[in-house]
Design a protein around this nucleic acid. Structure first.
Lengths: 228, 228
DNA sequence: CGAGATGTTGACGACCCTCAAGTGCAGTGG
DNA sequence: CCACTGCACTTGAGGGTCGTCAACATCTCG
């Protein structure tokens, strides 16, 4: 039983915490190691599993109008695959950005394995996760309205920081798991623009950059950028 | 009983279809007239109702970082409020763009009359609805990656045409219910850019414009704009 | 230590936003 | 029916932002 991982917390919420963990063990593959660039699931394949990112991180790509675009990132503690619930197939290709470990949950087996009471709890929890995911998508949608690259990059940094801190990591000092190119793709900017904007924010003493290591020095100023 | 409307389909999925429609009639307000700019529901108020657009159309706004932005449009045959499923409060303010009629369904009253078996079905349906909403947001999210105004406007026109035709309207000739300013806000562009882009598409003989009346003359060419 | 991936910097031009003026359209009252 | 009025829409000019291209630096990992 991985007591430290988000899945364990999830399991507790779900009311699946039994002394022998028998019901959970039937549908969960725990602490599975993944390598960099390893694919968790592929666009078009049947949807079956949810993945809780225990350590490491992932990026999901979707093919839109013939081109693959980065649709989102999954950080430690978050659930990859949640966007597929309600469908028969996956519409993203999700792969690990770095070495890490994940827990894999057989979503399709939930109904067969759990008692009706457990199932109601699980569904309620997943509904909440799906709603959270929808809020994240809506946040990402708001990027469309942000005119300047500075706003998009600042919003991105604050979003990552917020998500990391909600899972117990430092909110003002962290390492970006993804490349500049992936950030640019995600934000709808050119890679060079992302780099120049980061440097500009550094020059304004709002952040400090050392390649992928980011320190947020003036969160208030970053937030102010978004509102004006 | 409005057997043709989407609310009826929704009720069927939820297992509320009784021979006399009595249970449905208790929670549905049918063919309610709405005036231009009339508010259906407001940001922050408790989520309770779904609204099927019978005739007319709506726009939903959300306050993001202090500014109100157009998040989406609801056309005849579509359901406004679906984005609130899974939440306790509304996160949009939705108002009619023009005179029309709607059906109102008391969503919060559904759960009280259901057996545990039905509850499982309803929750499963809710997960699907949340995921469907997420996919809609994801489509709009892809606007962020469209570099040129031409691509965004073309995508918008094709989207509206597709949604109208899926509810029995003409796919190549229709009237835009929303202002140029609302379109611009929705697409993350300046109003003048939307106007100039529409005119440019007209000059290329892809569309024909007479203020809000649009005729799509070369759908293939519009689609080609998106892929290149 | 070397090679390929990743990140950085500079120059230049296109695109689109801003501002401002002008036109057309719809609803209202005489 | 017509003028009036307010709003939506259109058009033009100018400048800033960001994408593109190309060369170079740095990092990472075998």
């Amino acid at each position: 039983m991985c007591r430290n991982c988000a899945l364990y917390q999830t399991a507790r919420v779900l009311g699946l915490e039994t002394p022998d963990c028998s019901s959970l063990n039937r549908i969960v593959l725990r602490n599975h190691p993944v390598n960099k660039n390893e694919v968790l699931y592929t666009e078009g394949e049947p949807f079956r599993y949810l993945y809780l990112i225990h350590s490491g991180s992932c990026a999901s790509n979707a093919t839109i109008l013939g081109h693959s675009r980065v649709m989102g990132f999954y950080l430690p503690g978050e659930i990859a695959g949640i966007e597929n619930i309600g469908q028969t197939t996956c519409n993203h290709t999700t792969r690990a950005l770095e070495k890490g470990t994940i827990c894999q949950l057989d979503f399709s087996a939930l109904g067969k394995t759990l008692t009706p009471d457990e199932l109601i709890n699980v569904q309620k929890y997943l509904l909440g996760s799906a709603a959270q995911h929808a809020r994240q998508l809506q946040w990402e949608r708001s990027l469309t309205g942000m005119q300047t690259a500075e706003q998009r990059v600042a919003a991105f940094l604050l979003n990552i920081a917020s998500r990391l801190s909600s899972h117990g990591f430092h909110a003002h000092q962290f390492r970006l798991p993804m490349s500049r190119e992936a950030i640019a793709d995600y934000l709808g900017l050119a890679m060079e623009t992302v780099i120049r904007t980061l440097k500009s924010l550094q020059k304004q003493s709002m952040i400090s950059i050392k390649t992928r290591n980011i320190e947020i020095m003036d969160k208030t100023a970053l937030n102010t950028l978004l509102t004006t």
